[in-house]
């Protein structure tokens, strides 16, 4: 069996909030394999956002180990973390997080700018990614000229552009109606079929139902971790 994409050991994260110390993660252990489709669930305050931010290298743990692709990232500095975010992780956010003044094409290009690709190469790959999510005819549109579903497709195209090890989606359908939600979930299923590792953080059971594995957090620890038979 190959090494896991994500290996987390005794991960802890504490925040100082005034005099109080918030312990958001209290020792999480987790292994996620290549091409898994994982849903992370849990009530608010369960630590799922913190876990996602840590897995996404936006946040560093207070203690514990985090291995991404057999590289220990819990000890990396800011610049290296930026590099990991750029190459290994594709984010999809609830609020899309597109740059409002930039076109769809430029939004998708952004990660390539930070990985130092040449302009022509950037354009070619960004166009390719937008074609892949079915927005080949919307490249020059700005976010406010696109529907919610289309915006999230742009975000998915952006997440895919650097061929990341994992797609990390935080409530990806939270701002979408049920039909467009299905669209996006369908897109995730397609990507998963092509071999993509996907982690979705959600509190909606319908969305989690599409994943093959469901991890529930509670009070900063893993409460349950179960494989689903049918997908």
């Amino acid at each position: 069996m190959s090494a896991p994409v994500i290996k987390v050991r005794d991960l802890r994260r504490e925040y100082a909030m005034g005099a109080e110390t918030i312990r958001a993660l209290r020792g999480v252990d987790l292994d996620i394999m290549v091409n898994e489709y994982v849903a992370i669930m849990g009530p608010s305050g369960s630590g799922k956002s913190t876990l996602m931010n840590t897995i996404g290298c936006l946040d560093t743990p207070t203690s514990g180990e985090y291995w991404l692709n057999s590289q220990e990232v819990s000890t990396l500095g800011d610049d290296e973390l930026a590099r990991v975010r750029n190459r290994e992780i594709g984010f999809v956010f609830q609020t899309f997080n597109l740059l409002p003044r930039a076109t769809a094409l430029h939004n998708v290009e952004l990660p390539l700018i930070y990985s130092g690709e040449k302009k022509s190469e950037r354009k070619r790959r960004a166009e390719e990614a937008l074609e892949l999510v079915g927005l080949g005819d919307r490249m020059d549109h700005r976010p406010n000229e696109l529907s919610g579903g289309q915006r999230q497709r742009v975000a998915v195209a952006r997440a895919l552009i650097n061929k990341p090890s994992i797609i990390l989606a935080d409530e990806p359908t939270g701002n979408l109606d049920s039909r467009t939600s299905e669209d996006i979930i369908g897109l995730f299923a397609e990507l998963h079929d092509k071999g993509q590792t996907i982690i979705v953080v959600t509190h909606e059971p319908d969305i989690a139902a599409h994943a093959h594995r469901e991890i529930t957090l509670k009070d900063g620890t893993v409460f349950s971790d179960s494989l689903r038979q049918a997908a």
Binding site: G56, L58, D78, D79, A82, R83, R85, N86, R87, F91, N97, L98, L99, L110, P111, Y114, S115, R158, N162
Partner: peptide, 16 residues
């Protein structure tokens, strides 16, 4: 601030 956050999440380093 949000734009900066987005750029950072996409791999922008401090110096970028």
């Amino acid at each position: 601030t949000r734009e900066i956050g987005i750029r950072k999440s996409l791999g922008a380093r401090q110096r970028d």
